[in-house]
């Protein structure tokens, strides 16, 4: 019962700010609403016994990406002013498309009989994740580090003022 209560609270903490993110007319408010949504997802990760993923989620999403988005909103015009029209003319069609996809996903995901397995995750999660990264998934690890470097250089080059 306690787990269900925690899950419902965390799901609401995730979904209600997410609704504010996509509907708020003030973009600063939308970007600030990203933070509780990301924290709610981190809480769901803790419930799923993924403590390391939850920590990284807080550090990168709630820490870095939200601040980056806020910076760009502040540096560009038209984000904070509520006088600017923020939604385009396909609000109804977009809403219908999103609702249709959500309904299809829910029907598909909830009707499928997943091959559930009993048992719980190993205790020392972080150490196991680390050694999995450096043994089984070393290729993904190395490629993602190269992608990180390339995107760092690319972002610098793109955002640099041209002479």
């Amino acid at each position: 019962m306690g787990e269900l209560g925690a899950f419902i609270i965390l799901a609401l903490v995730t979904l209600l700010p997410a609704a504010a993110v996509v509907t708020s007319r003030n973009l600063v408010r939308a970007a600030m609403s990203l933070v509780p949504s990301f924290l709610g997802v981190a809480g769901l990760f803790v419930l799923l016994q993924a403590e390391f993923v939850a920590g990284i989620q807080i550090l990168i999403y709630a820490g870095a990406i939200a601040v980056l988005i806020l910076f760009v909103i502040m540096l560009t015009a038209g984000g904070t002013g509520t006088a600017v029209r923020q939604a385009n003319e396909q609000r109804v069609v977009g809403g219908l498309a999103a609702a249709a996809l959500t309904a299809a996903l829910l029907a598909l995901l909830l009707r499928t009989a997943w091959p559930l397995a009993a048992g719980s995750l190993p205790r020392a999660n972080v150490a196991a994740v680390g050694s999995a990264f450096l043994t089984t998934f070393v290729l993904a690890f190395e490629i993602s580090s190269v992608v990180l470097l390339v995107s760092l250089v690319g972002a610098l080059v793109i955002a640099r003022r041209e002479r």
């Binding site: 993110v21 996509v22 973009l27 939604a87 385009n88 498309a97 999103a98 959500t102 996903l105």
Partner: peptide, 17 residues
């Protein structure tokens, strides 16, 4: 959450949003 994100992508005008 996926549906909410899709709604945001389809209806927002601001690239940051």
């Amino acid at each position: 959450l996926f549906g909410l994100g899709l709604y945001g992508i389809l209806t927002r005008r601001n690239a940051v949003a």
